[in-house]
Design a protein around this nucleic acid. Sequence first.
RNA 1: GCCCCCAUUGUCUAGUGGCCCAGGACGCGGCCCUCUCAAGGCCGAAACACGAGUUCGAACCUCGUUGGGGGCACCA
Length: 495
Amino acid sequence: MNQQNPVRVRFAPSPTGHTHLGSGRTALYNYLIAQQTGGKFILRIEDTDRKRYVPGAEKELINSLHWLGIDWDEGPDVGGPSGPYYQTQRKEIYLEYAHQLVESGHAYYCFCTPERVEQVRKEQISRKENTHYDGLCRRLDPSEAEARVANGERHVIRFKVPEIGSVTVHDLLRGDMTVDASAIDDHVIVRSDGLALYHLAAMVDDHLMGITHVIRGDDWISTFPLHVLIIHAFGWWEPQWVHLSVFLKPTGKGKMSKRDTSQAMKDGYSIFIKDLEELGYIPEGVVNWMALMGWSYDDHTEFFTMQDLIEIFSLEHLNPSPAAINFTKLDYFNGLHIRNLSRKDLASRLAPYMVNGGLKVNEDILYQAIPIIRERLVTLDDVIPVAGFFFKENVSPDPDRLIAAGLTSAESADIARKVYHILAPLPLMSKDLAEPPIRNFMAESDLKAGQVFGLLREAVTGQKDSPPLFESMEIIGKDKVLERIQFAINILEQM
RNA sequence: GCCCCCAUUGUCUAGUGGCCCAGGACGCGGCCCUCUCAAGGCCGAAACACGAGUUCGAACCUCGUUGGGGGCACCA
């Protein structure tokens, strides 16, 4: 069942590092459900942690999302009715709501120093108890606390979790979860510098921004009950909650570590969206692949465009268990989508990779070559090894591979000369004109296809493997083909 | 240590008590096609973590065990 009513959803990353697969997928699902229901997708920057702030991270995030084809209706760069969309610019709002909680008895000022809190924690650990704030300031007389605040004493604001009872939260994927209130800490919601923490800020923002569905990472599941308690303390309606599972390393054993990340890079893969583009992946392939990690449609359909996904995506088919990243499947989807691109589109996407690879782009040749190189490309930068010979002035064949199987260099030179004389008189180097006489020659001389074609391929492309020979020669053109064969003859004769 | 989440082939998954001695996909092996390499087609090996229950009947429900993951911050 797809969502019927327009949703208001949000993607709320913190600019603390590179944008990775997990974030991309969370953003994607939010975007899909918004598009599908005709709702709104909001981008909100959760930059309340200045210590971990990474300059440039936000820019990268926006680029990565756009590259994937994900756009938002409201956000820092596009504005919108419920801005600002940076949490650091909403400091006063959070403070106001925090004071509201203090007044209603749902929060309290705490004057404990970080050192004391740490000390309490150490003692609890040594006694093998749960670590939690011991509630010293919770028992303070409110008017006394107010006086100390008025006096300028350094303080934080803590949320007052009920002492008894339990809280039941509901996640769309996992159903009800019930937690003892005693297991929830009196979490700090406003720092001593006056800036709110995520737990307060996100709940306030989601409420103010009219968020109907919170689709976020599974790492929030442990503080989920706290969040619900905060919402209840305000007397607000809860949104629908969906906690997406995390991605595991390719073996399925554990999360991606720094080491796994650099190992992936060595293998030509990456968990960072920005790298994927450099590595020659196309957004269509990445999106298709990403969507299918943790979500499925039915028993037999796997090829999806963004438009397909908007139509068929549904929260109900999300999988709560963590998924291992399968890069070889990304290769598969990327190839699939490359083959799905139009000739012109593919050509224009290939060009920049050719330039990067040091090739001079000839648009005409590139366009002609597309049909025979298309199914040989897994990533866009494969164009260099697969089709580089089309664009080079001359190639450097491997002398050893020039020698036809089972023959001597002199015999091979002889074959090359004969082929040259067959091709030279041709009005043009087309497959239809060139192939039949070469095949005749092979039959008459009792040579195998592998022998002649292998030699020719090496001579003309300088490669062991290549797209179909005659089609390739047709694109290279008669002059260049003959030139390259002559060059090969020279090599063979000197051996 | 405590709390929470998760558990079908190597991996992504279908499966919501009989349709399942488990279906699809990637990867892997083989064959076909073929001038090489791909792409494509066909075939194959490969899984319900374990143990108790409930039931006429369990991959599916319950409990326990084990394994994996996340959290226990004035991080998000």
